[in-house]
Design a protein around this nucleic acid. Structure first.
Lengths: 137, 137
DNA sequence: AATAAATACTACTTATTTGTAGCATATTAA
DNA sequence: TTAATATGCTACAAATAAGTAGTATTTATT
């Protein structure tokens, strides 16, 4: 009942960048600021580039910037790009056959929770966050 | 953003038993009904016994029954006994220092979600579930 | 053209979770 | 008291997630 480390890092990085969304950030700088390990961050940045959130420029004076406006990037999209958000909608008891017409004993309770989770994660965009106190390492 | 397999199994088993809470269930029977592997289920049952939800009687004609009324067993308690529910209250970005006075950028959004999750898991007791359609393998 | 400073890729290592095997222990009934 | 039928324990195996190492590639500056 927790996000994966990879999702945590992805959120941390993009939220940090969203504070000044027009800037160019080098991996080296983000590693220092956010205390995510070198190779892990770099690999993750490549994933986030492929997912279309950021774009990288290689070579000297290179780095990463947003590839689209931060009010178009939801927390749902970010998490979904590194761990499937679909699993949130799986049966909480692990039954594959579970559905509204053939529900498990917890189906209705879980439906309420997951709808709220989906709603908040979908509706919260990077631009909605409070950057006054962006906690960082 | 999903319960562990172990939590799923723990819930499956106890919810299944809660349908007829006075009965004695053998491991063999539960394994057949719920398709949880032999040794894994047995180990889990021992944990659930130690946590005080069920009690076991060894030897011939042995098995497991509830150790207390099922309206005193919440889903929170069950999940917490096999994977720490505390982690639900950890910072969603993984910052140890995150708190209401020193919040991360997602602190407020996440607080709303986790309070709802905590509430539902705490308030839902085994006796509250709908046993008309207990889906099983 | 050489160098410096950046990202990209592939393979490997470690840690955690999940699942399995085999033997030990307990209890009832004939 | 022996056989049958239960649970309990310890150690191992497999799968997945997390983290690390080293090298290749790209590009602006000189």
């Amino acid at each position: 009942m927790k996000l994966s480390k990879t999702s945590e890092y992805a959120l941390r990085i993009l939220i940090y960048m969203a504070k000044k969304p027009a800037d160019l950030y080098t991996a080296k700088y983000l590693i220092e600021q956010l205390h995510v390990s070198d190779k892990y961050l770099r690999r993750l940045m490549t994933e986030l580039s492929k997912a279309g959130f950021i774009k990288s420029t290689q070579g000297r004076d290179g780095g990463y910037t947003f590839a689209k406006p931060i009010n178009e990037i939801s927390l749902y999209d970010i998490i979904d790009s590194v761990e499937s958000m679909d699993k949130l909608n799986d049966c909480v008891l692990g039954f594959n056959e579970c559905s509204c017409t053939n529900p498990c004993a917890m189906h209705d309770e879980w439906l309420v929770i997951r709808q709220k989770l989906n709603k908040i994660f979908h509706e919260t965009k990077l631009s909605d966050l409070d950057f006054e106190h962006v906690l960082r390492y």
